[in-house]
Amino acid sequence: MLAIDSAGLVATSFRTLPPLDVVRAESVGEALQELRRAKRPAILAGGTDLPARFNVGDYPDIIIDIAKIKQLHAVFIDKSELVIGAAVTHQSGSTHALLPAVIPGFQEAWKKIANMRIRMSGTLGGNIMSRRTRYEGAILLAALNAQLEFATLSGPLFMAAGDLWDAELPVASLLQSIRIPIATKPRLDYERSLRPIFTQAFYVDDTGAGRLVSATEFVRPHIWAFDRNSQSNPSPEEIDFQDPVTGTAYLNQVRAVFFMRQMTRLGLS
């Protein structure tokens, strides 16, 4: 519902959406130009999250549909990175033949996101750009140390997936691709059995680097990086989760339990 400071709540929805302009961009450049002109632009990818914005009265004045931008739909390997176009859907991305070989565990994790209806149109880019705590793209990608490649008017902008929560993006920025380093032979384990209360992604690679991303329903994920070379028995420290629904003691307990189980599944203990 739309909260109006000086008055109250109004139940908005797609049925209360004011008139707006539409651009069906054919190229990244065209999309950027439109983004710059608009006051309240909204990029439209799979559209599975956008209406939630209408429901809180967040109305765009222009919709920039990126479906026609071919390069955003590609999945390929570029040198030492797995590159996933921002508009790649959960379904096509997670079933892509490249995945199992380059990042064991990633496919299984990605396949669990959402449901068939959402997976077939929801995109990985839309998932992280929704910037909602309970959406899982950001959890997996932070664990994988993915770089987000944005197109902006002043050229490409790179950002670690885990930094997106705090980032102030330029108004005209379009997520183009997600680049996941694969040279170090990363592996992933994703524990989702407690979703939405708590989920945890565990990353390790051949250099001994490890990363644990712990996420709750209502607060942003916590990222903990460790090095198995210098820490013989890494164990996650307690986090002050401050989730409004689930207690911190409990979350830390399951974080530790899942950590041990994930270690085992990854063959580390």
């Binding site: 929805s13 539409v22 069906r24 439209l44 559209g47 999250d49 939630a52 209806r117 149109s121």
Partner: peptide
């Protein structure tokens, strides 16, 4: 629900299930 959650507005677009509350007519 007008939010893509319930699916009671589902139709098939190019044989893919789509929530019609979350899909613009122009698409």
């Amino acid at each position: 629900c007008s939010r893509g959650a319930c699916g009671s507005c589902t139709v098939l677009v190019n044989n893919i299930p789509i929530a019609a509350c979350s899909y613009f007519a122009f698409q």
